[in-house]
Simulated assay, not measured.
Amino acid sequence: MKYQIVIAGIGGQGAVFLVKVLSIASAITNQKCLGTENHGMSQRGGSVSCYVKIGDFYAPAIDEGQADLLIALEGNEALRNIQYLSKERGVIVMNAPKNFPKVDFETHSIDAFKKAKAKEFPIDALNVYMLGVTLALDAHFPFTCKEIEEAITMMNAKVAEKNIAVLHQGINDTKAKK
């Protein structure tokens, strides 16, 4: 299997956390994984883009037109990173309001900021919520929910219960929306 993911967000949203969770999930499933991040001005709220390559790859960067999936923790970051998606198989899962511009890719959006502001889940778990949305929407995603749960637990057992609850909320909210 070969699968390439771009995770895009703003500093502090937890994009790098998702890279680590996916790397652990790869180890759990005995798959090769390369991950890298481009922080930029992330500590000041600037753009963060991360690449995760699962399978037999030798360099961590994703070339334009090659990614299978773009997980955008913020809508503008989806647009900033859209060039990495494959025209044939690229899927976008993003945190954005319904009035987001149309793009030429299979696109799934949910207004996770609105849900967090309504106290439906803690804002610091927005990244895990969007991972749950991805699990519910992307049939080609290389990991099961159980594997992601195990990776979250291995990543930080102290907050694993909270994060797994938010992961399932993302899954359930998405399935209810369908």
Rank of each mutant, 00 (worst) to 15 (best):
M1H: 12
K2A: 10
I5S: 06
V6T: 10
I7W: 04
A8Q: 00
A8G: 09
G11P: 04
Q13W: 08
Q13M: 10
A15P: 08
V16T: 08
F17H: 15
F17A: 15
V21N: 04
I24P: 02
A25D: 02
S26H: 05
A27L: 15
A27P: 09
I28A: 03
T29A: 11
N30F: 13
Q31E: 12
Q31H: 13
K32D: 14
C33E: 07
L34F: 07
L34A: 03
L34W: 02
T36P: 06
E37R: 07
H39I: 08
G40E: 07
M41Q: 13
S42V: 01
S42H: 07
Q43V: 10
R44S: 10
G46I: 08
V48M: 01
S49A: 14
V52Q: 00
V52A: 07
Y58V: 15
A61L: 15
E64L: 14
Q66R: 12
Q66T: 12
Q66K: 15
A67Y: 08
A67G: 08
D68C: 09
L73H: 04
E74S: 01
G75M: 00
G75E: 02
N76Q: 13
N76P: 09
L79H: 02
R80E: 02
N81H: 01
Q83E: 12
Y84F: 12
L85M: 00
L85P: 03
R89A: 11
G90P: 05
G90V: 01
V93R: 01
M94Q: 10
N95A: 01
A96I: 00
P97M: 06
P97G: 06
N99P: 07
P101T: 06
K102G: 02
K102T: 11
F105R: 00
E106V: 14
T107L: 06
H108I: 04
S109E: 09
S109N: 13
D111E: 05
A112C: 03
K115R: 12
K115P: 06
K117L: 15
K117Q: 15
K119D: 14
L126F: 10
L126E: 10
Y129Q: 01
Y129M: 05
G132E: 02
T134A: 03
L135Y: 08
L135I: 09
L137H: 02
D138R: 07
H140A: 15
H140E: 15
F143W: 03
F143M: 08
C145G: 13
E147M: 05
E150R: 13
A151K: 03
I152G: 04
M154D: 12
M155C: 12
N156H: 11
N156V: 10
N156S: 11
A157V: 14
K158N: 11
A160K: 03
E161M: 11
E161S: 12
K162W: 10
K162N: 12
N163S: 08
I164G: 05
I164N: 03
A165C: 11
Q169D: 08
I171C: 04
I171E: 04
N172P: 04
D173N: 09
